[in-house]
Amino acid sequence: MDRYSRQQLFAPIGERGQQSIREKHVLLIGAGALGAANAETLVRAGIGKITIVDRDYVEWSNLQRQQLYTEEDAAKRLPKAIAASVHLRAINSDVVVEPIVADADARLIEHIVGRHRPDVIIDSTDNFDVRMIINDVSQKYDVPWIYGACVGSYGLSYVVIPNETPCLRCLLEDVPFGVATCDTAGIISPVVHMVVAHQTAEALKICVHAQVNRKLVSFDTWHGQYHMIDVHKLKKDDCPSCGPKRTYPALQYENETKFAVLCGRETVQIRPAHRGEREWTTLLSFLTKRGIQVEQNDYLFSFTVNSHRFVVFSDGRVLIHGTNDVQEAKRLYYQYLG
């Protein structure tokens, strides 16, 4: 067991902790920058099993920060879950790596968590629709999850322990939408690693049954800021995800963001789960900074990226012209509109 000797020498883990890590199952949602780094750290640490869900494939623009992938993966356009599992098995053959190439929707996440009861869910997604689903599934099946996100040089992380800490819905009254994304504001690799350092440290603590950090951690690696906030006061008694009268809104079909192909028009229509007036100023300024021309009237605005035209109505409804493929539309939608 020389392989894990240095980790076992670390007193809070020890030999017993290492044995405990070997018996744990992690569910990783998303295999982009956060996902790749989370997976590599946990696989090297000797986790028992890791299930990786991702719908995307490896592209050249991923290689700058998505540490598991190679030029060959991008050239072959390998699905991220598959490419990740090949590299992870080469790193540590002791670990059971289960790739799932699929869209992480409510049904799939609930199926995996309900059937396999992972010990912890790690969020490595790029949007809040999926995070709210993870948040509800975590509460329903009593499985902790670890939020992590970053844009630019800014990142944050938070651990949700059902029945103990406030859940993500307690902290957020609305789903952030049209705010900065990695495709509008950019992203540098150091902040990815800082988020992942927090997520994996907390995951290891859960694996060895140590006390997790209950504070919301946020930082900016470029501007040298770091802060922790005690959020326990924000736990809401009437929260529909974790309160006594919970309804798990993100698991209900009517609350899903819906993607539909408009036949014969090379267009996919997106109806977001969260209706209502949106604040688009940030998005519009990012698009303008990137040299993307935006046309606007009182009811909608539109812009074109590569061959895809986005039309965004004031109620949040979006049309993406130039594709009939729902998965591609999904990727574009979350890339540009968050």
């Binding site: 998303g30 996100a149 705010v179 900065a180 990815v192 919301l216 979350y334």
Partner: peptide, 10 residues
């Protein structure tokens, strides 16, 4: 004053 805002990237 500390302002923490949520982002979605990753």
């Amino acid at each position: 004053i500390e302002i923490v805002h949520f982002v979605g990237g990753g």
